[in-house]
Nucleic acid binder design. Sequence first.
DNA 1: TTTATTAAACGTAAATATAACGTTTATTTT
DNA 2: AAAATAAACGTTATATTTACGTTTAATAAA
Lengths: 241, 241
Amino acid sequence: MKSELENLSKDQTYPSAEGLLVAVDSIIFGVRDNQLNVLLFEREVEPLAGNWSLVGSFVNRNEDVEKAASRILKTLTGLENIFMEQLYTFGNVNRDPGGRVLSIAYWSLIRIDQNNLKISVKNHKAKWVPFSTLPKLILDHNEMVEKAIRHLREQARFHPVGFELLPKEFTLVQLKRVYEAIFNVQIDDRNFRKKILNSGLLISLNKKDMSTSKKGSFLYSLNEERYRLLQETGYNFDFGF
Amino acid sequence: MKSELENLSKDQTYPSAEGLLVAVDSIIFGVRDNQLNVLLFEREVEPLAGNWSLVGSFVNRNEDVEKAASRILKTLTGLENIFMEQLYTFGNVNRDPGGRVLSIAYWSLIRIDQNNLKISVKNHKAKWVPFSTLPKLILDHNEMVEKAIRHLREQARFHPVGFELLPKEFTLVQLKRVYEAIFNVQIDDRNFRKKILNSGLLISLNKKDMSTSKKGSFLYSLNEERYRLLQETGYNFDFGF
DNA sequence: TTTATTAAACGTAAATATAACGTTTATTTT
DNA sequence: AAAATAAACGTTATATTTACGTTTAATAAA
C-alpha cells in the first residue's frame, strides 16, 4: 500500500514544470497632504486604457524573488534602501484569467517628496492615489491593498514603522500626522508627544522647521539603535483610540 | 525610448514558463510535555536516510496554493479546520540545488493528542521534535522554522492564538503551560490567571479535570465571539517577562 | 510698542493596567 | 485528624493610559 505520505517528501523526483508563472506586485504607501496614498498605475493606452493596477513585474528565471521586488521599487521611485517587506503570496488558480500566475506581494513605505514624485509623474504612468478614494483595480489587486493596509496598521501599532514615511529630519507634528493618516483617527497631541518622547526613539535637533507656524516646531531625527531595539521588542504605538 | 517602466505592467504579453516549480512547506507546532514541538519528517531509507525536513509537497497545476497547504495538513494529521496561516514565501534562486523551486511556507498550530499523534507515528515518517532540540534540516528549512517561531511569538503576544494548541476544554494551568512553552519563560500564575480571566475569553465550565491534582482544576472553554473580536482588535498577552 | 493671534510645547490628576509578592482552599494520602 | 499539594484567591506599589487645562514663542495687527 502506497501511503499518501509518500507524496509529502521533497526528496522525491521533481515534477515537470507546467507553465506556472510567478509575479511580484508592490503595495507602496506614502503620506501626502496628511493622507495615506498608494502608488498605482493607470493604463493610458488601449487596450484596457483607464485600468488601474498595482505596480508589478514577472520574476525572472534567474532572479531571487526579493530582488525582483527591489527592482520594481528601484525602477519606479529611483530609490534604493526603501522599507520593503513581503506581505503575502496570492496563489489561487483562477486569480489571473491569462494563465496560472502566482503573485508574491510586497509592501513598502516611502517618503513622498519632490524627488521620487517627479520620477513617477514624469513617466505618466505611476500615480499617487489616496487610499480613501482607491479605484477598482485589476485582478485581485484591491484585495492586495486591503491586506496591506491591515498589515500596515497591525505593524504600526507595535512597531516603529511610522518613521519610514518621514524624511530624516521631522517634527512631532509631522509624525503625529503620519500616525493619524495610518490609523485614520485624531490623536491627542499631548499624549502623543508624551509617549513618543518617552520611547527614546527621537534625537532632539536644536533647530526648528519654521514653515508651518510663527513659533516654528522643533526638528528631530531617529535614534537608529533604539529603533532597531524596538523593532525587535515591540513598543505600544496606540494613542487612545 | 522604451522606459523600463513598460516592463512593470502586468498587461503585457506573458513570458513563457521556464521550469519554475512551486512547493508548499508546513511548520506545524504543537505542545507536548510543556514543550513546543515541531512536526518533522525523518527519512528512513536511502538515499539520504537520516535527513530531517519539514512536511511539504509540490503545488499542483490546478490547485490553489492554500488548498495544497490544507492537503498536507489533512494527509498528515487527518485533521481539518486546523489553524493554518501563510508565513512567508522563500524565493531565492539557489535555495534548492535540484532546480528553481519556490516554497510557500505555512504555519499551523495543533493540539497534540492520541488521535493525530497516532497517525503520524503510525506512518513512521512524521515525528514530533522539541523545538529546543531541532536537528539540522534540509535546504532552508531551519530558516523556515526560525521564521515561524518568531512569527508565532509575535502573534501570541497580541493575539489569542495560544488557544489553538489546546483541546476544546482546558484548564488555566494548561493554558499557562502553553504560553510558557511558546515564550520559553516562567509566568507568574496569579498574574496570568488575572489577565486571562479579565480578557473575557474563557467560559467557565462547572467541572474539573481531576487528573493532575487532588483538588482538581476547573475546566474552561473558549468564548468564540470574544475570540474573534480580540483577533481583530488585539489583546496584550504579555505576562511580565 | 503694545496687543492679538496661533501653532507648538508643557503640565496634571484620575483611572487603569502591570508586576511582585503573600494567603487560603479543596481534595487525597498518611 | 494531620500532612501534603496543586489550584485558587488576594493585596499593594508602581507604571501607563486617558482626558483634559495652561503656557510659550514667534509674527501680525492695532
